[in-house]
Amino acid sequence: MAHIQRDRKKLLTRVRRIAGQVAALEQALETGDDCDAVLVQIAAAKGAMHGLMLEVMAGHLSDHLVAEPDQARREAEAAVLLDLLKRHAR
Protein backbone atom coordinates (compact mmCIF):
# COMPACT_ATOMS: atom_id res chain seq x y z
CA MET A 1 0.00 0.00 0.00
CA ALA A 2 2.35 2.66 -1.23
CA HIS A 3 -0.39 5.30 -1.09
CA ILE A 4 -0.86 4.68 2.64
CA GLN A 5 2.83 5.32 3.28
CA ARG A 6 2.93 8.25 0.85
CA ASP A 7 -0.10 9.91 2.47
CA ARG A 8 0.67 8.76 6.02
CA LYS A 9 0.99 12.22 7.59
CA LYS A 10 -2.25 13.48 6.02
CA LEU A 11 -4.14 10.31 6.99
CA LEU A 12 -2.87 10.41 10.56
CA THR A 13 -3.98 14.03 10.82
CA ARG A 14 -7.48 12.95 9.77
CA VAL A 15 -7.49 10.06 12.25
CA ARG A 16 -6.43 12.35 15.08
CA ARG A 17 -9.20 14.79 14.16
CA ILE A 18 -11.68 11.90 14.27
CA ALA A 19 -10.34 10.86 17.67
CA GLY A 20 -10.93 14.40 18.90
CA GLN A 21 -14.48 14.38 17.57
CA VAL A 22 -15.21 11.04 19.23
CA ALA A 23 -13.75 12.34 22.49
CA ALA A 24 -16.01 15.39 22.22
CA LEU A 25 -18.97 13.08 21.63
CA GLU A 26 -18.06 11.05 24.71
CA GLN A 27 -17.76 14.25 26.74
CA ALA A 28 -21.14 15.47 25.49
CA LEU A 29 -22.73 12.21 26.59
CA GLU A 30 -20.97 12.21 29.96
CA THR A 31 -21.96 15.77 30.78
CA GLY A 32 -25.55 15.32 29.65
CA ASP A 33 -25.52 17.75 26.74
CA ASP A 34 -28.73 18.28 24.81
CA CYS A 35 -29.50 15.74 22.11
CA ASP A 36 -28.94 18.34 19.37
CA ALA A 37 -25.33 18.82 20.51
CA VAL A 38 -24.83 15.04 20.63
CA LEU A 39 -26.29 14.67 17.14
CA VAL A 40 -23.94 17.36 15.83
CA GLN A 41 -20.96 15.50 17.30
CA ILE A 42 -22.15 12.20 15.80
CA ALA A 43 -22.59 13.83 12.38
CA ALA A 44 -19.14 15.42 12.58
CA ALA A 45 -17.46 12.10 13.46
CA LYS A 46 -19.37 10.25 10.74
CA GLY A 47 -18.44 12.88 8.16
CA ALA A 48 -14.80 12.74 9.17
CA MET A 49 -14.75 8.94 8.90
CA HIS A 50 -16.41 9.16 5.50
CA GLY A 51 -13.78 11.65 4.34
CA LEU A 52 -11.00 9.34 5.54
CA MET A 53 -12.58 6.42 3.71
CA LEU A 54 -12.79 8.42 0.49
CA GLU A 55 -9.17 9.56 0.81
CA VAL A 56 -7.86 6.01 1.23
CA MET A 57 -10.20 4.70 -1.44
CA ALA A 58 -8.98 7.30 -3.95
CA GLY A 59 -5.39 6.22 -3.32
CA HIS A 60 -6.39 2.59 -3.70
CA LEU A 61 -8.15 3.25 -6.99
CA SER A 62 -5.23 5.24 -8.32
CA ASP A 63 -2.43 2.92 -7.23
CA HIS A 64 -4.03 -0.52 -7.32
CA LEU A 65 -6.46 -0.27 -10.21
CA VAL A 66 -5.65 2.55 -12.61
CA ALA A 67 -1.86 2.15 -12.46
CA GLU A 68 -1.84 -1.67 -12.16
CA PRO A 69 -0.49 -3.17 -15.40
CA ASP A 70 -1.53 -6.77 -14.63
CA GLN A 71 -5.13 -7.48 -15.63
CA ALA A 72 -5.62 -10.29 -13.09
CA ARG A 73 -4.38 -8.13 -10.21
CA ARG A 74 -6.62 -5.25 -11.35
CA GLU A 75 -9.63 -7.57 -11.32
CA ALA A 76 -8.72 -8.90 -7.87
CA GLU A 77 -8.28 -5.38 -6.49
CA ALA A 78 -11.56 -4.30 -8.08
CA ALA A 79 -13.31 -7.22 -6.34
CA VAL A 80 -11.81 -6.19 -2.99
CA LEU A 81 -12.95 -2.61 -3.53
CA LEU A 82 -16.45 -3.65 -4.56
CA ASP A 83 -16.79 -5.80 -1.43
CA LEU A 84 -15.60 -2.90 0.68
CA LEU A 85 -18.13 -0.55 -0.92
CA LYS A 86 -20.93 -3.00 -0.22
CA ARG A 87 -19.93 -3.23 3.44
CA HIS A 88 -19.51 0.53 3.71
CA ALA A 89 -22.96 1.20 2.24
CA ARG A 90 -24.76 -0.86 4.89
Rank of each mutant, 00 (worst) to 15 (best):
L12P: 10
E55D: 14
A67M: 11
V15M: 08
A37W: 06
M53F: 13
L11Q: 08
L65R: 05
A72L: 01
G59D: 04
I18G: 00
I18V: 14
P69R: 01
R87D: 05
P69L: 00
A2V: 09
A72C: 01
A19P: 00
E75L: 01
A43H: 08
H88K: 07
V40F: 07
H60D: 03
L25N: 01
V56C: 03
K9H: 12
V15F: 09
E68W: 06
A2Y: 03
Q5V: 12
V15W: 03
Q27R: 15
M49Q: 15
L52C: 10
E30Q: 05
R87G: 12
A78F: 08
Q27M: 10
T13N: 12
A2G: 13
V56E: 02
I4R: 07
L54S: 12
A44L: 02
L39I: 06
M57S: 13
V66H: 08
A43T: 14
P69K: 01
T13I: 10
L25I: 12
T13M: 06
H3E: 12
L39T: 11
A23L: 11
T13S: 09
R14N: 13
E77F: 05
A2W: 09
A24W: 05
L85R: 07
D33N: 12
T31Q: 14
R8F: 03
H64S: 11
E55G: 08
I4N: 10
P69W: 00
L65V: 11
A23K: 12
G20Q: 04
L52Q: 09
H88Y: 00
